[in-house]
Design a protein around this nucleic acid. Structure first.
Lengths: 399, 399
DNA sequence: CGGATTAGGAAAGTTTCTTAACTGAATGGG
DNA sequence: CCCATTCAGTTAAGAAACTTTCCTAATCCG
């Protein structure tokens, strides 16, 4: 540990291999001279490097490029089969799973219903993995699994904290249990954190280094990406704003540790439903209630509009604390309830927020399609697998 | 920009030089074989490297080590004169300044009174620098200046924001103005942020990667070190919790943008003084009032004790929001008012905080001596100057 | 069909590190 | 008091990575 990098010439090769692989990953198929130019290496070195990466199975030839004056160039691309990742999204009713190759292309998906089951966690995860692998006949075993779940893993205790309601997941050393049971490295990550990763890669947060994501459905949660990295906090609880003291809500001290309190009590799904009900709008879920209110307000219903305004200002109060503390570039709004509010709710929250805090970051609605937790789990897994695969080219088994 | 590191063999030398210099910096004088062992390099390479660094003036011989069996070893150490840094702490009444060598040893200090002056900023800074340099006769010009000040530089606008009351500092492009006027690179940094850096280097936050520092005197402020790095925020306003909405205080919307509101209104110096006054304790400043209340409570004064309890719970409410959002490993309390409260106030705030939030980080009182803003400015300057000096060994003028 | 242009490759050379062997100076035990 | 041991420092040969230079091969275009 005293010597992170020995400083030997082979370190150079590792650095350059990595740079080349990253370039291939991000800029699609490339010719040898192009890779040389991007990495800053000379032509012969680029050639030699590609030969080596090709032999290692990380890179494959992908046709030629013609049409330019001069000799036709051979195009290289990352070998998609260089490594696979599995991603799971676990809730109390189902597990969605996906397997992707190293480029991020989904090769298999599966959905496993788990209605009120109490069974073994390892068995359920294995079943979800098996399902996804069955949908991708040719693919070899994934190198690791990332599991998205409501709750956060406390790095100190190794247990899942922050209010998970999923039976069977409160194991003393969850990562080791799963890892040994499955025979692969496992990561467990908070679902909202994963949504933030998906949003950074594919969504409206692309290109931002500091942003806050607010998730609002029946529960409230947030995720922080700061300095380009996901901020998890010392106990995994960063962004767990549901229990943050909020203006106009009882505190934990007043309500008790396990009762509803704080921001959640003020603006969580049930609170929003009851606010809207008081303004004459009903809905079976928070999202439906909000959608109904938006529709009614759009048709000129003054009461519904006032109800939405009340919801917006409640949300803005909690958001204001987060914004005052971290001063993000943007705030991303997502989650069923917030998305149901659409542009109308977004604008209301934004105006209210900007009246409450000195920093005035823009609020952006998520535009992601599909399951964002699963997409985020794929992202996290790809980061790790690429690190592993791209770093292990130099050959020789590391002691 | 596409090629952060060309990947040429000379990169290796740069990496190894850096590692050796850092080892010398952190582990005092070292022999050639020791440096070899630490950096992972062979004996001949270490020898050659030290010869080069010696020729470049970055490293000097510092006696020999005897007493061991075998030949006496020559000890090398960092050349303190390899670079100097200037640090300033600017308030509306005075400018304190210091100059240190690259090891952090202070070689000159100065204090310049600036009672209600409106004069030219550049002239004042130059005067403060001149004073510190006069106290260090032999030292050459510093390579850069770090200026600590109340307020934060918005990287977007280049202006100082967040309520500075120091006349003359609201210049359109402050960094360029100062840099051109002084002929050196200048950094301007928020004073509370600098205190956090000092606390991380010399204080109770040493060794922590994620912590929050709460500064309480007449004003309230905080600083965030997350993932080992100072988090400044998109507009430089991260940690500006004074204006954060807080339970029991008017909001910005209610009070108006420039009136007092939020956490500041609840627990800032003036608010604390009036709380204590209502409990029969008076003091000319917030710190004196708190010190008086602690003394009275220690002598059995029930009213004073209740007053302190009220102060603690007000502080805890705001702190709870910060803790819920970032989930730090520890919270450092500092600033005249909080330090005056000592262990008694700390324990009260801690108990209250732990009743309000799920994460329960320990609260630690600062134990730093001297001017922490100045110490932090030195730290920031040293980071940058070392980066500059250690990186520029390879020789040749970088284009 | 020939010139221009670019890709690919071979040969010689540079920079940086390593291993191995040697010299030299100090300690310390018989 | 001398010699074995131990460690610091140097020298020499060599390996690994990259460059520059030059040449050949393939394609486009007038």
């Amino acid at each position: 540990m005293t010597t992170p990098a020995p400083g030997t010439p082979s370190l150079l090769r590792a650095i350059n291999d990595r740079a080349a692989l990253r370039a291939l990953l991000e800029r699609g198929p490339l010719t040898r001279p192009e890779i040389g130019a991007i990495t800053g290496l000379s032509k012969p070195t680029a050639s030699q490097m590609l030969a080596r990466l090709s032999a290692a199975g990380l890179v494959v030839l992908d046709g030629v490029r013609e049409g330019m004056p001069g000799r036709t160039a051979e195009l290289y691309r990352l070998n998609p089969a260089a490594g696979y990742v599995a991603a799971l999204d676990v809730t109390h009713t189902r597990i969605e799973s996906a397997i992707t190759d190293i480029t991020g292309t989904v090769v298999g998906e599966h959905r496993l219903s788990t209605p009120r089951e109490r069974g073994d966690v390892v068995a359920k995860v294995r079943e979800a993995l098996r399902g996804a692998r069955a949908a991708a006949p040719g693919a070899p075993a994934p190198r690791r699994v990332v599991i998205g779940i409501q709750g956060a893993l406390d790095p100190g205790s190794g247990r899942l904290g922050y209010a998970t309601h999923i039976p069977g997941w409160h194991v003393p050393d969850l990562l080791a249990t799963l890892g040994e049971g499955l025979g692969l490295p496992v990561d467990v990550e908070n679902d909202v954190n994963l949504v933030a990763l998906a949003e950074r890669r594919h969504g409206v947060a692309r290109g931002y280094h500091d942003f806050v994501l607010l998730w609002g459905d029946s529960g409230l949660g947030s995720a922080l990406v700061l300095g380009g990295r996901l901020h998890r906090g010392a106990t995994g609880g960063a962004g767990e704003v549901g229990y943050m003291p909020a203006l106009g809500a009882p505190t934990m001290r007043e309500a008790g540790r396990h009762a509803i309190h704080g921001f959640q009590a003020l603006s969580g799904g049930p609170a929003v439903r009851s606010v809207l009900r008081a303004h004459g709008v009903r809905g079976a879920t928070p999202a439906l209630a909000v959608a109904g209110a938006v529709r009614a307000a759009g048709e000129g219903d003054e009461r519904a509009a006032r109800g939405l305004g009340e919801v917006a200002s409640r949300l803005a109060v909690g958001l204001a604390s987060v914004v005052a503390v971290v001063d993000p570039e943007i705030v991303v709004l997502t989650g069923g309830m917030l998305l149901a509010g659409g542009e109308r709710l977004r604008a209301l929250i934004e105006r209210e927020l900007h009246a409450l805090t000195l920093p005035r970051p823009p609020l952006l609605l998520s535009t992601l399609e599909g399951n964002p937790v699963l997409a985020g789990a794929v992202e996290l897994g790809l980061d790790k697998v690429r690190e592993e695969v791209f770093g292990a080219v130099a050959g020789g088994s590391p002691s």
